[in-house]
């Protein structure tokens, strides 16, 4: 494949990224989920590794303090020593698999955590190599390298082939989506325009946008909206109840993006577990993985690359 047109740093920028067509929420074609469920619910635990002393990226600072940023680093390390298992046990207990947004270097640093997630039957997609290595400023070869590293590393560690991408620390270039589509990935979690999957315009492959969420991401709940654990649980219940009701017309997707070092803190995990009970007991939820949602969606929609309008 020839090199992609250079649309990245230092070249012309566009006011419309041209990622998808406009489809009104009203009167959409009906998406149906298995067994008549109205809302597909998936949980995205971010299993991450942040470096204590990462190299500088001129486009984004990693830690806000001089290295070592003791609180920043050790807070995140809490996930890999304590709270991963707390979060994972609550999910397993109530029948929720994880679709893991993985800093793939975690496979080297703490394979014990990755093995635990794999043993629970969780799915993995890539969240970059480290959450302290940003795509901003990468050239095409570098971006290809981190995609190929991700595919190889996850395959070696878990036997799974990744199907999705959440950009490391949500850092993109204009070629990221083209490149992951070219590498055969099915979904991106980086676009927040809809409560249903959307076909994404790419030159090759068949890429869809999988609804993830900033708004009900535990990080936003606790550090943007300053919610208590109980307040965040209430937001999740309302999010679920609404999407389950609307999904009767056309199936919706609810993602719960998590970070164990946040949701797995002792003052929050109990309230979160009660949310899982609520969703599991409701009867309208298809509790599943991002990959299974992508498969169901792709099977229900037109197959020509990037041009279907559902």
């Amino acid at each position: 494949m020839p090199a992609l047109p250079r649309r990245g740093w230092g070249t012309a920028v566009r006011s419309d990224p041209g990622l998808y067509g406009y489809l009104p929420y009203r009167n959409r074609p009906r998406l149906v989920w298995p067994d008549g469920k109205t809302v597909a619910v998936w949980i995205a635990p971010n299993l991450e590794y942040y470096e204590i002393d990462p190299p500088a990226n001129p486009h984004r600072k990693s830690w806000s303090r001089p290295h070592p940023d003791v609180v920043g680093y050790s807070h995140r390390d809490h996930a890999n020593r304590v709270s991963h298992w707390r979060m994972a046990e609550a999910m397993t207990k109530h029948g929720f698999p994880g679709s893991v947004s993985l800093s793939v270097a975690l496979c080297q640093h703490h394979p014990e955590v990755v093995a635990d997630a794999n043993a629970r039957g969780w799915e993995f997609f890539s969240h970059g190599i480290y959450n302290t290595r940003y795509a901003y400023g990468m050239d095409e070869a570098q971006e290809r390298a981190i995609i190929e590293d991700s595919i190889r590393t996850v395959r070696e560690a878990t036997g799974q082939t990744i199907r999705g991408w959440l950009a490391p620390a949500l850092t993109h270039t204009e070629r990221t989506l083209e490149l992951i589509a070219e590498h055969g990935l099915s979904y991106t979690c980086d676009l927040y325009h809809d409560d249903q999957p959307t076909p994404i315009h790419t030159r090759s492959g068949r890429l869809i946008s999988m609804p993830y969420s900033l708004e009900v991401n535990d990080h936003y709940g606790f550090f943007v909206y300053n919610m208590s654990g109980r307040g965040y649980a209430d937001a999740l219940r309302r999010q679920f109840d609404r999407l389950a009701a609307e999904g009767a017309a056309s199936g919706t997707v609810m993602c719960i993006p998590l970070h164990a070092y946040l949701i797995g803190q002792p003052h929050r995990i109990g309230a979160f577990e009660r949310v899982l009970e609520h969703i599991a007991g409701d009867g309208r939820a298809w509790i599943t993985t991002a990959g299974a949602i992508a498969d169901s969606y792709l099977a229900q929609t037109v197959t020509c690359s990037g041009e279907s309008d559902q």
Binding site: W9, G10, Y49, E51, I52, D53, P55, N57, P58, H59, P68, A105, Q108, H109, H110, P111, I129, Y130, R133, G137, M138, D139, Q142, A145, I146
Partner: peptide, 19 residues
Amino acid sequence: MSLDHAYLDYPRRRHGYDH
């Protein structure tokens, strides 16, 4: 500004911590 090639070097990518 593009990144130095060394940006994709991971000298402490190993079992255990990066310290």
